[in-house]
């Protein structure tokens, strides 16, 4: 048993190191392009730091908000306010991101916490899928990137529609014990969720301090995904010419698939993916950009892995496949019928 675990760890590390080696080799392989290795490093660094510096304020704000929620909001009170009608409750679940602003990294533990408090499945699923987009920070970053217009409207309306639809699927077709892992039922042990806070620490200053403390930990939790995503995005932009992208990006169907795959692989934080999508504005179809901006925040590599810490495997598969198919069809519909 011990041996298999060690072997698995070794295999994972060898694979990670091999990927890093391929990443660096392909980055520095200048071929016949006429650029030098140092040019490549400079271009890559400039592109990476550009994405990172533009994105990191939003990540920090998200981390800090998450700390404020932890300190100030009692989730029990919020549950009492939920409507009794399942559809209305699910719709309000999709809107809850405006109260709990969280990107896709932060939303998973919040949802799990809400499940342990008895939140209905459908409401939790709608929140899980919608909150990474349906929140004030992402609204602001999308508007800053694209300006008020069809992209912003599509992004928010489609996310709400898909999240509520998938949520309602669970309202009718699933019971908690069939979908959730046992750990999501019982109060989570060992995490901060069990910790009773000392009474004397309830002043404004102490609360603010604790919010910052939680926020700084959140930065390390989520920042690494942002950094890896930015590295991959910068690598893509340094290696792949716009012309090549244009060739793939022109098909109504294939372009949507390509952008969905990109969203899944890049695993960008939803607070910043608008800026990355902006770089594809002139090369990719509107439907594919909308698919990127709606599917990516709901499901990507890192969130799918995090789902498996909450839900049973079959449910994780549904949560990946249903939003994928829905955003694919909607992207196609936009490409063929809405935009020209």
């Amino acid at each position: 048993m011990q041996n298999t675990t060690t072997l698995r760890k070794t295999v994972i590390w060898v694979a990670i190191l091999a990927l890093i080696a391929i990443f660096i080799y392909t980055l520095l392989d200048v071929g016949t392009s006429g650029a030098t290795v140092s040019d490549r490093i400079n271009t890559f660094t400039t592109r990476f730091l550009g994405i990172f510096i533009e994105a990191v304020p939003f990540l920090l704000l998200g981390s800090f908000f998450s700390g404020l929620i932890e300190v100030y909001i009692r989730r029990e009170d919020l549950l009492r306010m939920l409507p009794k009608n399942p559809l209305l409750a699910t719709m309000s679940g999709a809107m809850m991101g405006f109260v709990f602003p969280a990107c896709e990294c932060g939303v998973v533990p919040v949802t799990r916490r809400l499940f342990t408090k008895g939140l209905p499945m459908s409401v939790g699923i709608a929140f899980l899928l919608a909150a990474p987009v349906m929140n004030p920070i992402v609204l602001a970053s999308t508007v800053i990137a694209f300006g008020w217009g069809e992209i912003v409207v599509f992004r928010f309306v489609i996310t709400a529609f898909v999240a509520v639809s998938v949520g309602m699927l669970f309202a009718f077709a699933a019971r908690p014990h069939e979908t959730l892992l046992p750990v999501s039922f019982a109060p989570v042990r060992g995490g901060n969720f069990d910790i009773k806070l000392p009474e004397q620490n309830q002043g404004f200053g102490a609360n603010f301090y604790r919010a910052l403390r939680v926020g700084s930990d959140e930065f390390f939790e989520m920042g690494r995904f942002l950094i890896i995503g930015s590295l991959l995005a910068a690598w893509m932009q340094t290696r792949v010419s716009q012309g090549d992208l244009l060739n793939i990006g022109s098909g109504a169907f294939v372009s949507v698939l390509v952008m969905q795959a990109l969203a899944f692989v890049l695993s960008l934080c939803s607070t910043v993916d608008a800026f990355v999508a902006l770089s594809f504005l002139n090369t990719f179809s509107t439907g594919s950009l909308v698919a990127f901006l709606t599917f990516g925040p709901m499901v990507d590599i890192k969130s799918a892995m995090m789902f498996s810490g909450v839900f049973k495997k079959k449910i994780v598969a549904y949560l990946v496949i249903v939003p994928f198919l829905m955003t694919l069809l909607i992207g196609l519909w936009i490409n063929i019928w809405v935009m020209r």
């Binding site: 990294c105 901060n192 000392p198 620490n201 604790r210 403390r213 939680v214 959140e218 892995m305 810490g309």
Partner: peptide, 11 residues
């Protein structure tokens, strides 16, 4: 002082 590490499920 109570430090509050948020345990986010991590990969």
């Amino acid at each position: 002082a109570p430090a509050l590490p948020i345990e986010v499920a991590s990969l």
